[in-house]
Structure formats: structure tokens, C-alpha cells
Nucleic acid binder design. Structure first.
Lengths: 196, 196
DNA sequence: TGCAAAAACGGAACCACGTTCCGTATCGTT
DNA sequence: AACGATACGGAACGTGGTTCCGTTTTTGCA
């Protein structure tokens, strides 16, 4: 664990020791603040929590979105990895798809405000958007393909589009007790089935 | 037309003439700016386009959201009114529902960025959110009810939830050629059908 | 061990936005 | 024409992301 973008090496030999320590501190503080104040907490709050200056944050994470990516990278990767596993262990491709989407939805819904930040038109969050997509769309495509060849869903569903749709459905899922994103996603997935 | 919130009277006799003229100018300018720059165009741009000071905008429309409401009130009302009409003229309640949702989606997708502003958690847009919901949810509920009694959809679908879901699916529908909100909404509506 | 260059740090400063405030201009009535 | 009520314009404020730069800390080398 620790750094996460210094390639395959053991612990980023090229950086100064305090810099590495600060990066860890920052990740921890950000994660904590995200939990309590949501993903769109002010950068200043995170700096304060970490006992660090603003400059330090921006040196390690060029943009807010990069910090968010760093915080959630592990979980996104875990979700991506779960795809093939589910496909191998589930009774049907359709079941695997459903379970995988559930995983994704749980992830998004749990992170206060994450879904909103995923929007493509949010300036500065292209990196975040891109990371999620790069990592998850291929997995989704694989599951869709499997379900499609099994004849369990319509054959013309695009993985990117579905991911965006599901992500969109998760907007504001917390902060509104009358809206249950999971139910809506369930309807969307139900709509995937072939026309009778 | 013209004022729109002065109750039933003819043309708001209580206001000064220049004030009324400015309100019209502002509505026109806002509509124009929304078309070219999207619904989240800066208030200053609208003031500039109207050749008016910021104070003037905020006197007529206490908040950005109020201005947006004023600009789109006619169209929201038209959509609301179309509900019963469609129910009366369509072959089935399900067909009426589908067509009405299409109307709603067209409206949202056409207005650059409107769907995003509809989010409940956008501070200051409660009024906008509330107006849309007050006006459209009852209509949607009526259509859902009709389709449900006809056995054409699941009986346990909540109108509010469905409207939010559809609204959510429309986020960023422009500005992303790879995402077709209409198709996703179609899937969602398809998912409404009873389990086989 | 001492020291200078390199690497990081902190946080003031900047920009963009929504919104508020208040001195000034205009209206409409007497 | 004059005066009070009504509106106006835009400077100023609060908040949030991001940049910049003078200062501090670390590290490689003598």
C-alpha cells in the first residue's frame, strides 16, 4: 500500500521522507473528512484536518479530483476485480451482472456526494471521471457481453452508457430519504431484459 | 404572459413601470443566455446581457433558482397539463405514461444543465426543485396509477422516486455524445413492467 | 559534523461565483 | 417644481478552488 503511483518499487525512493509521510497523512485526513462532510468538502478543511498547508495538498494532488481518486482507488479497483470473480461463481451471467451493479451502487451511495462529482461536466473532475470509467467500463462490458450471449438481456446495451446511467441514478441518494437509488437501479436493470 | 406571479390581475399595477419592463428584459436575457451558455451561466452574464445591475436581478428574483423557475415556468406548466390530455387520447395508460415521460425528458435534455440544477442537494435551488416536483409529481402519480390499475406496470412505483430517477438520468445528457439519456430512460420505463 | 543546494512547506493572494448592501437616480404624485 | 417612495447599479463580502513565492527542512557531500 502506501504510495500507489510510484510504479512497482517498494516505497518511492525518489521522494523525500517527509513528503511521503505527508502524502499518507493527507490521504487519511481526506478519507476521514469525506466520511463526515461528504466528498465535496472544502480542500481547506482537509488541509486543516491533516495539519498541513494548502500548497502541500496541491503539490501532492494537482487537483481536488486527484485527491478523490487517490482516496477511492483501492475500492474502485476492488469493484473492478470483483467482476470476473462474480462471473465465475454466479449461477448466470445475468445474476453476476446484477450483483456487480449492486456492488457499484453500494460504493457510490455510501460515499456522500461521490456520484455528483462523477459528472463529466464538472470542470476539473475529468481525471476522476476517466479513472472510474477506464477501470469499470471494461468489466461492465464483459458482464454485459456474457449476459447477452446467454440471451438474458437485450444485445444492444452499451457498457459506458449503462455505467453512466447507474451513476446518475445514484445522485443525491443519501440526503433524500424519499429517493431510493437502489430501487431505481433495479428497475433499470430489469429494463435490460429482452422485449417479450 | 408577462409577470407570472402577481396572482390573477392583469399587469401588476402596484409596481413601477420601469421595474416591470426590467423584469421582462431580464427574463428575455436570461432565456437567451441559458440557451447559449447553459442554465448555470453566471448571474453576472445575465445582468450584462440585460444591461442591468446585479442588484436589479436580485430584487426581482431573490435567488438564481427563482430566475430559472421564472424562465421555465411556462414549459413546466405545459408539461404538467399534457399529462391528463395524453391519458385521455392515448391507446393505453402505459402509452400515455411513456409519452409523457418523453415530453419531460425532451424538456430536460434540451435545457443545457437544467437537470443538474434540479438536484436537491444544490444549496439554494430548493425552490426550483420544489416547483418542478409540486407541478409534475401529481401528474406522474396520476399516470402511474392509471397504468397500475390497468395492470400494465408494477403497482409499487412511487411517482416522486420515478421523477427523480428520470431527472437524474438526464444529467449531462448534452455535453456527452456517448451518453443517450433517452435510451436509459426507456430502459427504466421498460423496467416498470410487471415481473413476468 | 557542518553546510549549501534541492525539495517541501505554509498560507497569503488570486479568480470566479452567488449574494448583500447602500448611496444614487428615477418615477409619479402633489 | 419638489418631494418621498421605489428602483437601480455595482462595490463589497463570503466561500471555494488554485497559484505563487518566501521560508523551512532534508539530504548529499566534504
Amino acid at each position: 500500500m502506501s504510495d500507489g503511483d510510484e510504479g512497482a518499487g517498494q516505497s518511492a525512493p525518489s521522494r523525500r521522507k517527509d513528503a511521503r509521510r505527508n502524502k499518507e497523512t493527507l490521504l487519511g485526513a481526506a478519507a476521514a473528512v469525506f466520511v463526515t462532510s461528504g466528498v465535496d468538502a472544502p480542500v481547506r478543511d482537509i488541509a486543516a484536518k491533516a495539519g498541513v498547508g494548502l500548497g502541500t495538498i496541491y503539490r501532492h494532488f494537482p487537483t481536488r479530483a486527484d485527491l478523490i481518486i487517490a482516496v477511492y482507488r483501492h475500492q474502485v479497483d476492488a469493484c473492478a476485480d470483483a467482476g470476473p470473480a462474480l462471473l465465475a461463481t454466479s449461477a448466470s451471467a445475468h445474476a453476476a451482472l446484477g450483483r456487480w451493479i449492486d456492488l457499484f451502487v453500494d460504493f457510490l451511495v455510501t460515499k456522500h456526494g461521490l456520484a455528483a462529482v462523477l459528472q463529466a461536466d464538472n470542470a476539473g473532475s475529468e481525471a476522476l471521471h476517466a479513472y472510474f470509467l477506464d477501470r469499470l467500463v471494461p468489466v461492465c462490458a464483459e458482464l454485459l457481453e456474457a449476459a447477452a450471449v446467454a440471451g438474458e438481456i437485450r444485445p444492444d446495451v452499451d457498457a459506458y452508457e449503462l455505467m453512466r446511467g447507474v451513476g446518475n441514478l445514484c445522485f443525491g441518494a443519501d440526503s433524500d430519504p424519499r429517493y431510493d437509488a437502489r430501487r431505481m437501479v433495479e428497475l433499470l436493470i430489469a429494463g435490460l431484459r429482452p422485449h417479450r
